[in-house]
Nucleic acid binder design. Structure first.
Lengths: 323, 323
DNA sequence: ATGAAAGCGCTAACAG
DNA sequence: CTGTTAGCGCTTTCAT
């Protein structure tokens, strides 16, 4: 069995509270005593038991991070940034994957609730109503979803979608397709709204699509059948899958059809054709989400909304519309 | 504040121990009482506090999963399989990323030690010596590394590497390069050993390389300079990066140089040329790792080594050697 | 079948 | 500066 605070107290001839203070409020203990305790602790390999500490303080120093699909390359940069940022603040991030299943997501939140001080909800698939209800159990910061009165990080995909559509329009495309994402995705909704408001081009919405390469692959036939010359895909994975599907059917990108993705994942930068895409500031979002959450643990007002800009990265998958 | 066991006891007119039993040993309580307690609990939204439970039982019902880099598409299938498998057994998996840094890895293990019942160490970068020492703090199952006397899941990459080299040799390649991985990677060591034992072909080892697309990209010049006609890369990411690097320098794959990867990640199946690769049974490894760990919590003997077969998937990135 | 009481490892007043 | 005392939420003997 690992050493407890009691073992250390006994071995160093002080009481447990002194040992406790040595670790949680070092300035309150005589440096001589402190050093002795520290030495003994080191010797015994003692480490404070965070779970037990949490029971009394009410703070676990853990934060949960829930994503819909850890396989989606969009998330890892966000996760890594959040973990690094949190670690520097003596917090630990536990990641969990919901498999795109709202029920699993809800269950996960319940499981996590007592083991973490707060949860980062990234691109949740749960309805706002359920999120608001769950909020009673544990503090949230929501990423990529607008939930009333809850600290929120938004990446302005509406603006990104407009940029993408304008880019396509500027290349002479008059009729373009929007491959929407899963039901429940706020991002997808924003993109649809931007598409509906577009002027000078006709945007046809096709979806919902699975937010994966497979989803894009499956949409290829419909895209070809619809006669569009440009496509804005829900994300890069869908875009890459679509390009592959078009290629298999002998349709050239960007020769015959131009494709724009969203996220700017690494493999979109290496695949050929290199993907034109809306870049999302994922690492910044991860750090800011942690900041907002930690801030909300403090006393007062937490900023309730942070919007991060997106930008268009033009590469090789878009070109002039065919006459 | 969330409802505690005490609230439920009070509201249902029984003592806390009865409530406790209702949840952890239902058969010990009269069905009438049980139903009443359950109803009240439901009503109050009570959920047993796992952390507090852990304090008395010594079991958290959590397991940790440590990976070197969550961005590497090799891991997500393993993670997802492990999470799903564990969830079905009422265990929860916490994932953490070490950023390929052994120091972070060690610190993470310490942090996790008291909050989980055991840790899945996937492709660790720590030395065996350190792993053995840490083992005193928390049970491990190690994936892709041979550690003395510790439950281990191995994917037989040695065999996979042999298959790959034979495949290349069979296509007439006489001189091939092995792009090795990071220092501390067992997988890389096994591949080198297989390469050294290869007959009929000369294998030159180049490395260490970062296990990423960037690593492959950076190796392109050296590969071209070495005059090899075939390459076995540490993993698919490296292979994809290498192919891109070769392409940028006007070298065709598989026309002039054949490339084999390892892992069989999704994007290798969609990139062009589609990657010839050694497939790793990652999902099976994830499930088996969970099984082994849970098994080791039980009484007696845990199988100490499970070896999973790998296989070669031939696609488009390999072809006949140039004369 | 249920209640009473002790205790898991730690922190937090409160004294001294 | 350090010791004393409760108690966090729960499980677990031991009684009854």
């Amino acid at each position: 069995m690992a050493a407890t605070i009691r073992d250390v107290a006994r071995a160093s001839g002080v009481h447990v509270s002194t040992v406790s203070r040595t670790f949680s409020a070092p300035h309150l203990v005589n440096s001589e005593t402190r050093n002795r305790v520290l030495a003994v602790a080191e010797d015994l390999g003692y480490r404070p038991n965070r779970a037990a500490r949490a029971l009394t303080t009410g703070r676990t120093h853990n934060i949960g991070l829930i994503v819909a699909d850890i396989s989606n390359p969009f998330f890892p940069p966000l996760i890594k940034a959040a973990q690094a940022h949190a670690r520097a603040r003596d917090y630990h991030v536990f990641v969990a994957d919901t498999d795109e299943d709202p029920l699993v997501e809800e269950e996960l939140i319940h499981t996590l609730a007592k083991q973490v001080d707060g949860v980062l909800l990234c691109s949740p698939r749960l309805s706002n109503r359920v999120i608001e209800r769950l909020h009673a159990d544990v503090p949230f910061v929501v990423v990529n979803r607008r939930v009333k009165g809850m600290p929120t990080i938004l990446m302005d995909i509406g603006q990104g979608a407009r940029l993408a559509i304008e880019h396509l329009a500027g290349l002479g495309h008059r009729r373009i397709a929007l491959l929407s994402g899963p039901t429940g995705s706020w991002t997808s909704g924003e993109m649809c709204a931007a598409a509906a408001a577009a002027e000078g081009v006709e945007v046809v919405i096709m979806g919902p699509n699975a937010p994966t390469e497979r989803g894009g692959l499956a949409a290829a036939a419909e895209v070809i059948g619809s006669g569009v010359t440009g496509v804005l895909a829900y994300n890069d994975l869908v875009a890459i899958g679509l390009i592959e599907g078009l290629y298999e059917r002998g349709v050239r990108v960007p020769g015959e059809i131009s494709v724009v993705g969203v996220d700017d994942i690494v493999s979109g930068r290496l695949n050929r054709p290199k993907l034109t895409t809306v870049a999302m500031p994922t690492a910044a979002a991860g750090r800011m989400a942690v900041d907002l959450l930690l801030h909300s643990f403090g006393d007062g007002a937490t900023p309730t909304l942070a919007t991060l800009e997106t930008s268009l990265v033009v590469r090789e998958s878009t070109g002039e519309a065919q006459k």
